[in-house]
Design a protein around this nucleic acid. Structure first.
Lengths: 218, 218
DNA sequence: AGAACAAATGAACACTTGTTCATTTAAATA
DNA sequence: TATTTAAATGAACAAGTGTTCATTTGTTCT
């Protein structure tokens, strides 16, 4: 009977554990990690603070769990379900897909909170920087740079520095996502920024693609 | 003699006031505003905490003063000393100047700290968002967009959406500045990012400029 | 030198913080 | 039903927080 804990249904306990994570994320993203108290978290769920310690060793462990969850978050797995060897054939539609994903994620509450948490803590938390670097930068920017290289070899796009191109493609998306977050905080209209996601891809693709004809009309 | 305070030399008192601001900025940028205690600040200067209150009403006022100083910081006044009506004639060299300024600011300690403080607090502090919006976004992005419009009229660059162009120009610079900050935190090499500042301008200008000849060789 | 004043000190305050723990409650197991 | 186990509670603690204030220090002006 020493394996009890391995096959317990976790039916009720895990519910509050999930609640703690969900509410903590929201609070951390809004007020910041340090400014959020364990009483805030417990209060927002409707339990007493001491109950938190049945699920997490301490406040830090809540943050660490959220950070670990970052590795499986959507923004970090843009290419996860795509077949790497065929990606470069898609051309513009691949890029448009990425931009649309970015745009949609800006308006997904869970992901918006993760983004804000990331932005606020990345300068203080080395672990977050590691995850950002490994999972966002390496997995997305570096991978896209490889795709661009393949596109150049097949003469789909003009040849230039693939890593520069990948940065040029991602940085506006990142910037626009941040703009949306900031505008929403003040309940301002995001429509002008939203349209930039697609405009960026159009502009970008126009610049990199191999011109098929010599005609220069728009 | 009721004007004494107006013409006092401020010789000694203002020195510690400056010290408080300088050390606070460093600490806020490193640990975050909330995690920095008044004892931290006083300790880093070498005075007792109670002495702080001779210069600032409270901890919040220190942050507010730093935020107000943002309006006169370098990143926010890129065009301040330029003559607006003639800017668009400069073309590529104007853009290269801006990129170089960004690059240099990434390595200026004072400005790096301001950037980190901005990034960490902008999601929590409406005043910072206001300043960011008015002084960075309006003053730089919107202004550059006006310059691009003028360039289009004079057929220096291809005609397209000037605001999109301004965003495309600024967002990589912003992104690279953040990358440099993050790399420096972990004492990693920044050289690969540093070269992107200039590469970006070359790439950008190549894409927007009016082609003088029909020849398409690079 | 003496008066006036700004700045620094030391000690204390009221309050908030994260965390612990004995106890109660409730559910699962045997 | 009785037993075991997990989860929630209430109360408390020790440490850390921002801030106040009477007092001392040191400088400036007359």
């Amino acid at each position: 009977m020493n394996e009890q804990s391995a096959n317990t249904p976790l039916s009720k306990g895990s519910k509050t554990k999930e609640k703690i994570l969900k509410h903590s994320l929201k609070l951390f993203a809004t007020k910041g990690y340090k400014a959020t108290t364990v009483r805030d978290i417990a209060g927002s769920i409707g339990i007493k603070q001491s109950a938190l310690y049945n699920h997490f060793k301490n406040k830090d462990e809540i943050l660490e769990t959220l950070i670990s969850d970052l590795t499986s978050s959507a923004i970090v797995t843009l290419f996860a379900n795509k077949d790497a060897s065929e990606l470069h054939k898609d051309g513009k539609s691949l890029l448009m897909g990425i931009a649309t994903t970015f745009k949609l994620l800006s308006f997904d509450g869970q992901n918006e909170a993760l983004f804000k948490l990331l932005m606020q803590e990345i300068f203080r938390n080395e672990r977050i920087r590691e995850i950002y670097n490994e999972h966002f930068y390496q997995e997305n920017v570096k991978k896209l740079s490889g795709i661009f290289f393949a596109m150049m070899q097949e003469e789909i796009i003009k040849s230039s520095d693939p890593l520069l191109l990948a940065n040029e493609f991602f940085s506006p998306l990142f910037f626009y996502q941040m703009q949306v977050s900031l505008l929403k905080l003040d309940k301002k209209s995001t429509s002008s920024v939203v349209s930039l996601f697609e405009k960026h891809v159009e502009y970008f693709w126009d610049n990199v693609r191999q011109e098929k004809t010599e005609g220069l009309f728009q």
